[in-house]
Design a binder for these strands. Structure first.
Lengths: 349, 349
DNA sequence: CTGAAAGCGCTTACAG
DNA sequence: CTGAAAGCGCTTACAG
């Protein structure tokens, strides 16, 4: 019964810098100097104060410090949804970066809803935040303008497009990643390669489709429009579109999915038809979320260094916070193809 | 080029309540009253002030308010690691609950490291936080004592055991969940059912093993020690232990895994042996993380209402913050068996 | 209905 | 080396 009862009885007032000063028989500014390791305190005084600080278990109030120096020690990470492993990788990267810098991460989910976004903006603008990292923002958003207007530093991760050249951002090589995935499938002997893509409004969807087209064209192959299936970056899109693909008179022998989640949907569609991956159908994903390594079979996929993207975004933000210049407004991290067990040569020639 | 250039040139001072007062030709306290919807302001005055507030785009400073009323508007969510879908479900629940209450969520990862934990404690104790939600804390932790001592309200989700009866916590019915999963396998005709479990030091591991034993004993079946395999709640444990299990002279026909991640490892071990799930080996998981619904095949699993657990923890914390009494110090949410495609009757009778 | 005064806990010049 | 004074932006009694 110790814990909570203690808590309720010991409703003692918080120990402040004034209490320390009193106990150490010095003035408040002197304690402040000791706390902040500033010069101008006699050695003996300093030691006495330090001892009192320990004895009293004094910890300075963040709120008071914030009010004085205008820094809150918290950075906002703003995401649309908390529904995919993709976002969690980025979160982990940002948390790590912020933690190293001694900053806290406030996580906000907007659900792409105006109301939540407004409320978030209020929070940010009331100076509860030193800066912000926005995932999947689009350039048209009022948000960005509002942030800029209020002088809140921010950087965008994996933007949806339409960003001004002056907006700090970090992304990945979507085009190159899609191209190399397609080339790999080609090298295995596939000629009928379908693409399941993301929302057409996203720049990354567009870039990946271009990479896919480029690989086919370089191989002298036509791009079959029925093989290109846009959708959302979710499981259902993978399932539905692959089912439709398999109903084609000439079904593809390989599917390149725009996300690993979609790729799991491709697996499901294949299973429903009694098709074995990779024997009957080859599959490549995009992202390389942790789940892909443990999928059945393990998924060959284009790795986006999501955690690193979060780390880089954090570094950029830290420079902004320190008024240091950025080496480049846009940072693009390389993707890489991770070979696992979901691809094989096509069955029939 | 508009965004960032604006930002750097418009280095104007922040608009304060004094600016509003000046512009509206009233005193600062009057503006404060308008802001907080308090009585004692003439209608005309109120309207004038409100208009100025809008014109100037005034937003009150959180730091100043915090210093006055002692509330920061942020709650800490403390987790060990950011490495499993399990934790993300809880995070989503807590975020939702906090967001509804108009509070922000600061996410901290301790990595189970003392240093990080210390640093986190400093943060919490410097009053940068109104309260905390701890996931997978254990009773022995200094943390809990430190929090209680400093009067920081907190609640523990899915504790590892050893918690005092006076510590607010939320968990799930581990025993019942394990029992019903085992019963289900039994009802399918399985007699050789293995259990892959979590770390023996975790209370939940213990409870689940007891549930498993209870089901076997109720069916008049012996508990085969070689069929009980403790480990970590990760993929590798599932893979390694299942491989060992399949090497037994009498291998099990069904595996009940302590987590869905482990279950994916079971899938992999089966695949490596050319065994088909569920035809050759039945598998039940624990958690029901989103991945399990899209696994290949979709995983039958014991659902823990993880997001709801986060939601409930948040509600409890909010009551604590408002000095309201808790209905119960411990809240235990029901698990439920989710039937999917990873179980079938055993092949041989 | 309105505003002068005090204070939340700290830090930063500045005077001694 | 030490401390009195002012101020960060707000809110809460309190007097008029």
């Amino acid at each position: 019964v110790p814990l909570m009862s203690e808590k309720s009885t010991v409703a003692e007032r918080r120990c402040t810098i004034a209490d320390v000063a009193l106990a150490a028989c010095v003035s408040v500014p002197t304690v402040s100097k000791v706390l902040n390791n500033q010069n101008g305190v006699a050695k003996a005084t300093r030691e006495r104060v330090q001892q009192v600080i320990v004895e009293l278990g004094y910890v300075s109030s963040r709120a008071a410090r914030s009010l004085r120096n205008g820094q809150t020690g918290v950075v906002d990470l703003v995401v649309l949804r908390l529904d995919s492993p993709y976002i969690f990788e980025i979160i982990a990267g940002v948390e790590e970066g912020l933690s190293r810098a001694g900053l806290r991460m406030a996580l906000t989910v907007t659900h792409d809803k105006l109301q939540r976004e407004r409320r978030w903006l209020e929070t940010v603008i009331d100076r509860a935040t030193d800066g912000a990292i926005l995932v999947l923002a689009h350039g048209q958003s009022d948000r960005l303008d509002a942030l800029a207007q209020h002088g809140v530093p921010f950087v965008v991760v994996d933007h949806r497009g339409g960003l001004g050249a002056q907006v700090p951002s970090v992304g990945a090589t979507n085009w190159a990643g899609a191209r190399s995935a397609t080339e790999y499938l080609l090298s295995l002997g596939h000629r009928r390669i379908a693409l399941i893509s993301g929302p057409p409004s996203y720049e990354c969807s567009h870039d990946r489709e271009e990479g896919y087209r480029a690989a086919l064209q370089a191989a002298g192959l036509p791009v079959h429009p029925a093989y290109i299936r846009p959708g959302e970056f979710v499981y259902d899109t993978g399932l539905v579109e692959t089912t439709a693909l398999l109903d084609l008179p000439e079904p593809p022998t390989a599917v390149f999915a725009g996300s690993d989640l979609q790729a799991m949907g491709v697996y499901a569609a294949a299973r429903a038809r009694g098709l074995l991956v990779p024997h009957d159908l080859s599959v490549v994903g995009f992202d390389d979320v942790p789940m892909s390594a443990t999928a059945n079979p393990p998924l060959t996929t284009v790795r986006q260094p999501l955690a690193d993207m979060g780390l880089v975004a954090t570094s950029m933000l830290l420079r902004l916070l320190n008024d240091e210049p950025l080496d480049s407004m846009g940072m693009v991290l390389p993707t890489s193809l991770v070979y696992r067990d979901s691809c094989a040569p096509p069955r029939e020639g």
